[in-house]
């Protein structure tokens, strides 16, 4: 009765029959961004020495949190196939994020 939409509602399944899978490309992006993260201090130093552009410590930290969130999003969307899942399933892991943000804000403010 409920097994009608099997392939249509399974993200991984849909990707399996597609021609190109993005897995290696995603890995390359994750690796390059991680390299950037590890060397962010040296990169900031270089920018300052070469062009006098100052990236403060806190700007670096904010950048690091941003790249982490972007990497997490890529893993969730492509490796966990969320991008290809029905909307209602995409909402499931998004629901707790409201509380994540709330908690982060409370911790920061206190």
């Amino acid at each position: 009765m409920a097994a009608v939409t099997r392939t249509a509602s399974n993200g991984a399944e849909r990707l399996a029959h597609g021609l190109k899978r993005p897995y290696v490309a995603i890995f390359a992006v994750l690796a390059v961004v991680t390299l950037f993260e590890i060397n962010i201090g040296a990169i900031a130093q270089f920018l300052q020495d070469a062009w006098g552009v100052v990236v403060t410590r806190y700007e670096q930290y904010a950048l690091l949190l941003g790249t982490a969130a972007a990497k997490a999003g890529l893993v969730a969307m492509y490796y966990m196939h969320l991008r290809y899942e029905p909307r209602i399933l995409q909402l499931v892991p998004l629901a707790p994020l409201v509380f994540v943000i709330l908690l982060a804000v409370i911790v920061m403010l206190r």
């Binding site: 409920a2 009608v4 939409t5 099997r6 509602s9 399974n10 399933l89 892991p93 707790p96």
Partner: peptide, 30 residues
């Protein structure tokens, strides 16, 4: 059955279970 009805029409029950477990893990690590 292996697949959910409303509101998660057609989604595997086990997969939905794993996602809900992951939600609890998000709370834990948060």
């Amino acid at each position: 059955g292996r697949f959910e009805e409303r509101p998660f029409v057609g989604i595997s029950s086990r997969k939905l279970g794993m996602w809900i477990f992951i939600v609890s893990e998000i709370f834990f690590f948060t």
